[in-house]
């Protein structure tokens, strides 16, 4: 039999647990509902598909949507080869365990640095020293540095899950090192690369501090080449600008709702991708 004291203790602990679970869930639900409630009424065809005009006072976020798209594309194109290449080198080629450890440690530290510091360094290095001025390109370069550790680490982790026996089998048939990596090791770690990309896209969507310094605030409608060369606000930056500098809270909440939906979709696709590959592995 449990003593009375013990029973009371268990009940108290259980109650505390239910309260914390309830609070966490309630907070998330409240946040999402609040943003949707405030934002969705302001989402209109005009908002989504036009550019802002100062003469008519119209507000449109099409340029910001495009800028976000450009910056995501440019960043991924630059960061994937760099990150995957570094991961391959570190796991497959590097012999010196100490240096590998140091690089991994550096990468981990890099991902913990506040993003505003990246913005500051990016502004000084890319915008001024390399002469890119304030532009989406300078912004995506900064994001490349920020996301490099993510891509590198997820790729590395999945490279390590490719069984050594596959490599042995391929070497035993007379395949050279690069062929073994290209045909046997890399296909086995596609899921890691994709997961890294999805995480990075999420991070890019949510990034504002690093971009305030490097990519600017403009809302001009540009093609991708012109767009990358000129300043422009991404959705997150636009949210900041509309809320803080123009007092357009409706628009800000509309953007917030859009970002929230995008984040949801990205997380969902990450889950689907990992499920898909887990199934393939089991076979």
């Amino acid at each position: 039999m449990l003593s009375k004291k013990r029973k009371a203790y268990i009940t108290a602990m259980k109650t505390a647990m239910y309260i914390s679970v309830g609070l966490t869930a309630a907070l998330v639900i409240f946040l999402v509902l609040f943003v949707f409630f405030k934002g969705i009424p302001h989402i209109s065809r005009e908002l989504l598909f036009t550019k802002p005009s100062y003469t008519s006072g119209r507000i449109g976020i099409l340029p910001d949507v495009l800028n976000t798209l450009y910056i995501v594309l440019a960043t991924l194109i630059l960061v994937i080869p760099l990150g995957v290449g570094a991961a391959i080198y570190l796991t497959e080629y590097a012999q010196n365990k100490k240096i590998v450890g140091m690089i991994e440690y550096a990468a981990e530290t890099l991902s913990g640095i506040p993003s505003i510091i990246y913005g500051l360094v990016g502004m000084l290095f890319f915008c001024q020293f390399l002469g890119f001025k304030t532009s989406l390109l300078a912004g995506s370069m900064t994001l490349v540095i920020m996301n490099l550790p993510t891509i590198m680490r997820t790729t590395q982790e999945s490279l390590k899950t490719v069984p050594q026996s596959y490599r042995d089998g391929a070497f035993g048939l007379g395949a050279g090192k690069w062929r073994v990596i290209r045909t046997v090791v890399l296909p086995g770690c596609v899921d890691g690369v994709i997961t890294g990309c999805i995480l990075s896209v999420g991070r890019i969507l949510g990034e504002s501090a690093a971009l305030l310094f490097t990519a600017g605030f403009a809302h001009a409608l540009n093609g991708i080449v012109e767009g990358l060369a000129s300043p422009g606000a991404t959705l997150t930056v636009a949210l900041y600008v509309y809320a803080k500098e123009q007092g357009e809270f409706g628009v800000a909440f509309a953007i917030a709702a859009i970002l929230m939906i995008l984040t949801l979709l990205i997380n969902l696709s990450a889950v689907l991708v990992s499920k898909h590959f887990a199934k393939k592995r089991k076979l």
Binding site: Y166, D168, G169, A170, G172, A175, T183, P187, R281
Partner: peptide
């Protein structure tokens, strides 16, 4: 690589590549 082509190896644990039967044989 040429040496390992002439002197092949079969391992303790079967280690087919995670691809089709055809591609496994055609790999070499």
């Amino acid at each position: 690589n040429e040496l390992r082509r002439e002197i092949g190896m079969v391992f303790q644990k079967p280690n087919p590549f995670p691809m089709s039967i055809y591609d496994n044989i055609a790999y070499g």
